[in-house]
């Protein structure tokens, strides 16, 4: 598989991972003792409060919206690679835009969530947990994957393959004048009706 084809696949995977990540929890702030769960679970689409009657205290930020749009732009960029050769640059530019959008929104999301997990008045004696959750890490992984995919999409095309056999020189100190050429010495062939010609060896080559 060429580097560009790998880039297309990775861009599609990164877009899918980013969308999945918005539905996974980003963070958990609260108490988690036996049967007594109190706290806030943040995802890309708001905050789930446990128990429900406490809802409304935590901020309901829709972090997922720009992430999903960025994933769509990234997918479009990957799909545009199938355009004819002279228009293919459009796909690579679109992939850059999608990756930039994803990186910007994930970065800001991370900063906002991290700040909510490290309040200035944190007191360890309360036993309150401040946990990063898998959704946030998956967002970061999807962004890293999108960056790799975009770099691969911009890889130089594979060089054209030469027609015919390829000979590699293994001896660095070769002497062109005395060494046997790579395909041997050509056997001189005389025309069959030549007065001095023989039938044996006349049809080699």
């Amino acid at each position: 598989m060429s580097r560009r084809a790998l880039g297309v696949v990775l861009a599609a995977v990164a877009a899918g991972l980013a969308v999945v990540a918005t539905f996974l929890p980003y963070s958990w702030v609260g108490l988690d003792r036996d049967e007594d769960r109190v706290g806030f679970l943040t995802t890309g689409w708001g905050t789930r409060t446990e128990p429900e009657r406490l809802a409304g205290i935590a901020r309901e930020t829709q972090f997922g919206v720009p992430v999903v749009i960025a994933a769509v732009v990234l997918l479009i960029g990957a799909a545009l690679v199938f355009l004819p050769e002279h228009q293919r640059r459009a796909g690579r530019s679109t992939a850059i835009a999608g990756t930039g959008l994803l990186a910007g929104s994930v970065w800001t999301t991370f900063v906002v969530v991290a700040a909510s997990l490290e309040p200035a008045d944190q007191d360890v004696r309360t036993g309150l947990a401040h946990d990063y959750r898998e959704g946030l890490w998956l967002l970061v992984a999807a962004t890293a994957l999108a960056v790799v995919a975009t770099v691969l999409l911009h890889a130089a095309p594979p060089p054209p393959r030469p027609a015919g056999a390829i000979v590699h020189r293994v001896d660095d100190e070769a002497d062109d004048d005395t060494d046997t050429p790579p395909f041997g010495l050509a056997v001189p062939v005389l025309p069959p009706d030549h007065p001095g010609g023989t039938d044996q060896g006349g049809r080699t080559g």
Partner: peptide, 22 residues
């Protein structure tokens, strides 16, 4: 420049959602 513009849009957009939620 294109990547920078997209990065700016992404972070400003998410900041907008953060402010909207306030």
């Amino acid at each position: 420049a294109l990547g920078g513009a997209a990065l700016l849009l992404g972070s400003a957009w998410t900041t907008g959602h953060h402010v909207l939620a306030a």
